[in-house]
Design a protein around this nucleic acid. Structure first.
Lengths: 243, 243
DNA sequence: CGAGCCGTTGAGGGGATTCAAGCTCAGTGG
DNA sequence: CCACTGAGCTTGAATCCCCTCAACGGCTCG
């Protein structure tokens, strides 16, 4: 059932990375934001910036590649297979999020990480972080902060996206996706079966609700897999359901 | 809606803690297991071992007491209130688990932590950990390991306990509780409304399913709030549902 | 003993699933 | 150019699971 994964990210690697790091647009968001220029100088040759197409795997459950990633742009989803054999999406990661932290502990990845949109990453070999963290307390703080962020996201997911009537769960998902909207205000609108895997409902139910939200002017669908939300109406709908 | 919390844990504190730490029965499980005797020696006077009754709060969401805990015995549950105003239980912690890590980052607690059974804790002021971690790399590793453990638990929760038919969710919960069984093989059997808050179902549904499982010989209820499972039948039931 | 909490069970209704059919659209090849 | 195909989306009808509303019994406690 589990497919073998091939590392997607055998980067040409070179000096270009020097400027890439220095001028990284998400550096303030990313893990190494905790480092000064001097710290960055020592390591940028070891960092790659791979690009992953939508629906391609970043890494697979069970892999031990010894690499962590920062998401520079796009959305990554974490998938698991239930013991019952069902695919479940348990969390999303967006710009600035750290993914694959398990590797820091020499542990295998817990989930399949799949690009939901085209994704750009910052690929960081674990030894790099180990070496730095021996001296840089700030980096360790930053690591812990991100771990806690992931934990908080996961708990929010199960309390907001796994409970209540189907319409509410869809609205909550859209609200979350709005937080990852691009500069034009467009969101990634998952396929209906993916929504089903996230919200524990059938394709048909997801489709019915999305259609209903379009009729109500909450959501505008812009195929393929994009959409635009009316924030006010979305909020009003949620208020209405929560009474 | 949020209640003010009073610190439960103003310990008499004294030398007795010296032996308490050295002879701690869960020391190999606990955070400071990463420390040698020497390390322990320096800090045991700062550690308290409070006891919390069932249904008492360990800490509340929003508190900033600057303390983390290790669970020495018993079960702690993490509660949140949905934006819709519903109480949700998002995770459980048992023996050896670290709770309240947010405090290490000077952040407020994210959830209400409530004792589900009588609980004994190890109460550790954050400055103690800060001071140690500046030198002890092993402690930091251990911290990270626990953070990852919590994350994994949270994701498992939403993929296994939030999805599928009601009967399956209850069985999954019982399976999880079996992992926290005491030495006599007894498990904590939540009240029906608590099961509802964990599994997103009504009291009535929870009650009906528990009753049904008792009739089927999967579960033996031993009031108050205790039970015994027939592991084989539980497993068989799950197999049957997952087909 | 009455009050209140907790658990249980029943009847009825509603929301989600199941099963089924038809739709749009992109890609393919005649 | 257009039939053909398959993937994704939508909609309808029947069914079923779970929720809602309601009543009742056991138990503890004032």
């Amino acid at each position: 059932m589990l497919m073998k994964t091939l590392p997607i990210h055998l980067e040409p690697a070179a000096h270009p990375q020097a400027e890439a790091c220095a001028s990284c647009t998400v550096r303030h968001l990313a893990l190494f934001g905790a480092l000064g220029d001097a710290g960055l100088e020592r390591i940028h040759t070891l960092i790659a910036s791979p690009r992953v197409d939508a629906e391609q795997r970043v890494y697979g459950r069970g892999d031990t590649t010894g690499v962590v990633y920062t998401v520079r742009s796009g959305i990554v989803r974490f998938e698991r297979v239930t013991e019952g054999g069902q695919r479940r999406i348990v969390r999303l990661a967006g710009q600035g999020d750290l993914i694959g932290q398990e590797a820091l502990l020499r542990q295998a990845y817990r989930d399949d990480a799949v690009a939901s949109t085209p994704v750009t990453l910052c690929r960081i070999p674990v030894p790099v972080i180990d070496a730095l963290s021996a001296q840089q307390m700030a980096l360790i703080r930053e690591l812990m902060r991100r771990w806690q962020q992931a934990l908080d996201d996961a708990e929010n997911w199960s309390s907001e996206l796994c409970t209540g009537p189907a319409r509410r769960r869809v609205l909550k998902l859209l609200q979350l996706l709005q937080g990852h909207a691009d500069e034009r205000g467009l969101i990634w609108l998952p396929r209906r079966d993916q929504m089903g895997d996230m919200l524990d409902m059938t394709v048909e139910t997801a489709s019915r609700i999305v259609s209903s939200l379009r009729r109500d002017g909450v959501l505008e669908a812009l195929p393929p897999q994009h959409g635009r939300l009316d924030g006010a109406r979305l909020h009003a709908e949620l208020m209405h359901i929560d009474r």
